[in-house]
Design a protein around this nucleic acid. Structure first.
Length: 571
RNA sequence: GCGCCUGUAGCUCAGUAGGAUAGAGCAACUGCCUUCUAAGCAGUGGGUCAGGGGUUCGAAUCCCUUCAGGCGCGCCA
């Protein structure tokens, strides 16, 4: 729909000799009296043309409305519209003919989900890295937010013609993992009745004792009263492996999967970190100062130079991150999307600088920041302190309020705003929650179709997807002409707008737009359902309404799938 | 002190690349299940878009500034 308007405007501007802007803005007007779609084009042109917007709009509109343009392309497109008129300060409002809506909708039914897809990515390779929580403890709610966003965004990108890889960066090297190992070691000794000083900054969560217990079960008292330093590798690696397995398990329960698990340790083992530093050294961007090795990040817009190798000889976290981003870029991805907690935002300039220095350009990096999640219970903040080991895990939340609902709540906010997640509210409101509102629309349609078969409106032809199996694939515009109620026209238009919503969501990298759209669509369907019967005595009407319902369900199921939320047929 | 994010209805949040009369859900109140699923529907009330300046035909949206909250500013990860 939006494309048609853009196209005809572009052609008109061309014919009138008016220079077209790069992007013609088309929007859904606030009130239905203003038509189906509108463009403020004339008003934005007023500046450059130095003419009143009303005049410009008038010129475009009268051109489009003249019968003898003699331009077949315009006439063909013009035929879709009931009217095109100037309104307000210079808006051009477009109203579609019913027939045109019917025929577009029939096309959507015929092509099914394929018609939602626009090839925006054109095969571009995108790597989406998200979650990437340290394997030193279970995932908490903040990680869940990143997981929901990353998964939904990846689905959305993949559905829009991008070649997407989902990756989790595992920080399995360095001090934190050592600390985890020693914490486990300490608990292990305790379990065997030996007192061992718990590391100052160790991990105090109960899961640490759990890991120690498992080691005790498999290895017995083998390490009893031994020196940690001699068994550090074993404890660290084992603990890290077990944590990672638990994290994968949590993510699976959350319905989030990854294509690649990139180990940080491997970057060291394969000397990729050294290689990255050498590469920069070769470009003269590395220098030694006060015993440390520095990267000249200021040359690329960072506010200070950054240490890669400490004076003590250890690599910094940043060093492996440079190598990691080099590796990602080397693989030929056109875009690297990193989803980080907002507390890492200060890190963006230095990673950008690194990519720039590596010859890839910082534009290749897109960092999406996910703001903090404040966990509440009945309006009171739940303390989350890793140090004290008190925090509510993602798993606990999933078990308490459900994965679908948790995801939907995350995806109903834009990433870059703080989020209060109240467990009591999420649970208490569970019967009237937005996610159910959307799912329920689909389930109701499922029920209608089951009834339609039972009552002989349609013949069942088998298959799990009742709707796909029942309706003829050659639905023609004529089948839809009985749809004349205002609610029905509204629904037709809303469904037809879905591809544009996806496009906008992809371009803005904002899956939450889908969430809102689905709520709006369901918000049109429920009242319609309540007011009008789908299965009536009139066969033609019933069939048309079934077609409408099928289109709605197709869109809802597609949208929910992209969000990673289930779309049950029955509720 | 510097930087980033946020501030919209009682609460939680949308507001689509500056556009027409600022929206939704929850909460509150009033009705609706012998008809395809009441996880639903119909109706009512609710706003200094944090404050102040500016840019222009037009600002919740862009710029400046003040205030409030959050997060960063390491040879931590």
């Amino acid at each position: 729909m939006i494309e048609t308007v853009r196209e005809i405007l572009t052609l008109a501007l061309g014919a009138l000799g008016i220079p077209a802007p790069e992007r013609i803005e088309v929007e859904v007007p606030k009130a239905e009296s203003m038509g189906d779609l509108a463009t403020p084009l004339a008003m934005s042109l007023a500046k450059t043309l130095k003419r009143p917007p009303g005049k410009i709009a008038e010129e475009i509109v009268s051109f489009l409305n003249s019968k003898d343009i003699g331009l077949p392309d315009i006439l063909r497109l013009r035929d879709d519209f009931e009217k095109i008129e100037v309104a307000g300060p210079g808006f051009i409002n477009f109203t579609f003919k019913r027939e045109s809506l019917y025929s577009s909708f029939a096309g959507l039914l015929r092509q099914g989900g394929a018609s939602f897809r626009k090839d925006i990515g054109k095969g571009q390779k995108i790597l989406v890295e998200f979650v990437s929580a340290n394997p030193t403890g279970p995932l908490h709610l903040g990680h869940g937010r990143g997981a929901a966003l990353g998964a939904a965004l990846s689905n959305l990108l993949a559905a829009s013609g991008f070649n997407v890889t989902k990756e989790y960066y595992v920080n399995d090297a360095g001090r934190q993992v050592g600390l985890l190992g020693e914490s486990v070691f300490a608990r292990y000794q305790e379990l065997l009745g030996i007192s061992y000083p718990f590391p100052e900054e160790g991990y105090r969560g109960e899961y640490v004792t759990g890991i120690a217990r498992k080691i005790m079960e498999t290895e017995g008292a083998k390490y009893k009263d031994k020196e940690f330093s001699r068994h550090a590798d074993y404890f660290s690696k084992t603990a890290c492996d077990m944590m990672l397995a638990a994290i994968k398990d949590d993510l699976e329960s959350f319905g989030v999967t990854f294509d690649v698990w990139q180990s940080e340790k491997e970057l060291y083992d394969k000397t990729e970190v050294e290689a990255a530093i050498d590469y920069l050294r070769g470009k003269g961007l590395i220098y030694e100062k006060e015993g440390a090795t520095w990267f000249a990040a200021t040359s690329f817009g960072d506010e200070k130079d950054r240490v890669l190798i400490k004076s003590g000889g250890q690599y910094t976290y940043f060093a492996s991150d440079v190598a990691y981003h080099k590796k990602k870029a080397d693989k030929g991805y056109d875009e690297l999307i990193d989803i980080w907690g907002a507390d890492h935002h200060g890190y963006i300039p230095r990673v950008g600088a690194a990519l720039e220095a590596l010859g890839y350009g910082k534009e290749r990096l897109t960092v999406l920041l996910v703001q903090m999640v404040s966990l509440l219970r009945g309006g009171k903040p739940v303390q989350m302190s890793k140090r004290a080991g008190e925090f509510v895990t993602l798993r606990e939340v999933i078990e308490e309020v459900g994965a679908d609902m948790t995801k939907f709540i995350f995806l109903t906010r834009k990433a870059d705003s703080h989020l209060d997640f109240d467990l009591e509210v999420a649970k208490a409101a569970s019967a009237e929650n937005p996610v159910y509102y959307v799912q329920y629309a689909n389930a109701r349609i499922g029920s209608i179709f089951r009834n339609a078969v039972q009552q002989g409106f349609l013949h069942e032809e088998g298959g799990a997807d009742v709707r796909a199996a029942l309706l003829p694939t050659d639905s023609s515009p004529d089948d839809l002409s009985p749809l004349a109620e205002p609610e029905e026209i509204r629904l037709l238009k809303k469904v037809l707008l879905y591809p544009s919503v996806l496009e906008a969501a992809v371009q803005a990298r904002e899956p939450h737009r889908i969430t809102y759209y689905l709520q709006e669509l369901a918000g049109l369907f429920h009242p319609y359902y309540n007011r009008h019967r789908i299965l009536t005595d009139e066969r033609g009407l019933s069939f048309a309404r079934l077609c409408l319902c099928r289109g709605i369900a197709l869109v809802i199921r597609d949208g929910l799938r992209l969000l990673g939320v289930a779309a049950p047929e029955k509720m």
